[in-house]
Computed example of a mutant assay.
Amino acid sequence: MTTEDHGTSFARTDDGIAVAYQSRGTGRPLVLLAGQANNHHWWDGVRGDFDKTHRTITLDYRGTGTSDKPCDGYSTPRFAQDVVAVLDSLGIERADVYGTSMGGRVAQWIAARHPGRVRRLVLGCTSPGGPHAVERDTSVRRSLAQADPEAVRQTLTDLMYSPGWLARHSGPHHTLGDPTMPPLARRGHLLASDQHNAWEALPSITAPTLILHGDHDRLTPADNVALLAGRIPDTRTHLFPGARHAYFEECRPEAGALVRDFLS
């Protein structure tokens, strides 16, 4: 496959799905993985922080963006295989991987099942999944299950960002979901995230790992940081005071610097 700076190219997975990806810049490759039901635009607000040090690679998960939108095949291990297909398409043997939210769950599988492909790993606002994880409370789940799409969007906005940050940043916000997704794909992403359970696989991760989280995150509670750190052998952690789920935007200067320093 060909690659284009700032453009979109396609990799073909082993089950025949075309996955869109975007490669930008030069330097050590850094894969940036977005949250559930989001495409590569999730990273628009902070991708430039890595331009001087890395070749950044994003993708549209199957079901999002310009990737194929099949009726099935949605799981975090399957998404991890899709990322490996993108790396193969680009001829990249080893990369740094930074996954946030569901992207952090996908990144866990890449690092556990393909340790030779991951040089350093960053996990943001994520959890190990399964019965050991600390889940969001029922009030959050109820708010996200409302029938009114605008009400759900407002709930997501409040879960992502603190009121003070929102007062200074009116948007548009690219972390609230891909509006082009068909309902089947959206349900597939929800199931993929909800059914994630990498607990037994986490000790297999050999890459040095940085775990980041906002300490006011109600979408994925920050108690999951200690759980991940207790299972992955070589970890360091950092909590951002007052930050919610999208700490990487709200605390951009500090978060970007921490990640760059760790990856260097």
Rank of each mutant, 00 (worst) to 15 (best):
201 A>Q: 12
192 A>R: 04
98 Y>L: 04
112 A>N: 10
40 H>W: 12
139 S>G: 02
25 G>E: 08
232 I>L: 12
47 R>Q: 15
80 A>M: 02
133 A>H: 10
204 S>Q: 14
215 D>Y: 06
232 I>E: 08
228 L>G: 00
231 R>N: 14
80 A>F: 02
60 D>T: 07
76 T>Q: 13
80 A>G: 00
138 T>R: 07
40 H>C: 12
186 R>F: 08
65 G>N: 14
204 S>C: 09
29 P>V: 07
250 E>D: 07
227 L>D: 13
227 L>E: 01
21 Y>F: 13
51 D>E: 11
256 G>F: 12
88 D>T: 03
207 A>C: 09
58 T>F: 05
144 L>R: 04
166 L>H: 02
193 S>C: 06
195 Q>A: 12
162 S>Y: 08
111 A>G: 11
122 V>C: 08
22 Q>K: 13
245 H>G: 09
38 N>S: 15
106 V>F: 04
117 R>L: 11
191 L>W: 06
167 A>E: 14
77 P>M: 07
50 F>R: 12
112 A>F: 14
5 D>T: 12
88 D>L: 02
182 P>Y: 08
127 S>N: 12
111 A>E: 14
172 P>T: 11
118 V>S: 01
87 L>I: 08
212 L>Y: 07
197 N>D: 15
156 L>I: 15
95 A>W: 02
54 H>Q: 04
37 A>K: 01
107 A>W: 02
159 L>G: 06
257 A>S: 06
235 T>K: 01
110 I>C: 06
95 A>R: 13
132 H>P: 03
59 L>Y: 15
157 T>C: 02
92 I>A: 03
198 A>G: 05
162 S>C: 00
11 A>E: 07
242 G>M: 11
237 T>F: 00
245 H>N: 14
176 L>N: 00
115 P>Y: 08
243 A>W: 06
91 G>Y: 13
86 V>I: 07
137 D>C: 12
73 G>N: 09
48 G>H: 07
51 D>W: 10
162 S>W: 02
196 H>F: 01
215 D>T: 09
250 E>K: 00
45 G>H: 09
254 E>Y: 00
155 T>Y: 05
187 R>L: 13
209 T>I: 14
159 L>Q: 10
22 Q>R: 10
246 A>C: 08
77 P>L: 11
217 D>M: 03
89 S>R: 08
232 I>D: 11
177 G>L: 06
109 W>C: 15
35 G>Q: 03
239 L>W: 15
79 F>E: 00
110 I>N: 00
103 G>E: 10
212 L>N: 03
176 L>C: 07
146 Q>V: 04
95 A>Q: 06
174 H>E: 11
92 I>E: 06
56 T>I: 13
175 T>M: 01
221 P>F: 12
81 Q>L: 04
85 A>T: 06
106 V>T: 08
251 C>G: 00
21 Y>Q: 02
112 A>W: 09
110 I>Q: 01
134 V>S: 07
257 A>Y: 00
139 S>W: 12
248 F>I: 11
229 A>T: 06
14 D>Y: 06
207 A>P: 10
130 G>H: 09
242 G>H: 03
235 T>H: 15
218 R>K: 10
120 R>P: 03
253 P>W: 00
258 L>N: 00
14 D>E: 14
170 S>F: 04
188 G>I: 13
14 D>G: 13
165 W>P: 00
66 T>M: 04
85 A>S: 12
94 R>G: 01
118 V>R: 03
88 D>A: 09
180 T>K: 03
52 K>R: 06
186 R>M: 05
112 A>D: 05
101 S>P: 04
219 L>P: 05
